[in-house]
């Protein structure tokens, strides 16, 4: 059987990939942020998580911030503010 040579249609990464730093092994005294994407129940979920982090893991402070809406990126000022204030920030989605 004859052969045919074809080219891959898959793109190549345009730049260097980012590495997410490891989560801290110890949470005591840290400030933890939650970036709310505005979808239903995210606030309830993270309120409960925040309580657990404070009462059972010694987290000092919980910061809760909300994006304008679920489908556009967080404003640069909001990201800068959370980066300055928090030791760890969780960005998630809820439905």
């Amino acid at each position: 059987m004859g052969k045919i040579r074809v080219l891959s249609p898959v793109g190549v990464a345009a730049g260097e990939s980012l590495t997410v730093p490891a989560l801290p092994r110890q949470w005591r005294g840290l400030t933890i942020g939650f970036l709310d994407n505005t979808k239903a129940n995210f606030d309830r979920l993270t309120a409960e998580m925040g309580d657990l982090l404070r009462t059972q893991h010694g987290v000092a402070k919980i910061v809760h911030r909300r994006k304008a809406n679920a489908s556009t990126p967080a404003a640069p000022g909001l990201i800068a503010e959370m980066a300055k204030e928090c030791d760890v920030v969780f960005a998630g989605s809820a439905d």
């Binding site: 059987m1 004859g2 052969k3 045919i4 040579r5 074809v6 080219l7 891959s8 898959v10």
Partner: peptide, 11 residues
């Protein structure tokens, strides 16, 4: 460099 595959030449 784009990957090149050599396949049997049938649809």
């Amino acid at each position: 460099m784009t990957e090149v595959l050599e396949l049997d030449d049938t649809p």
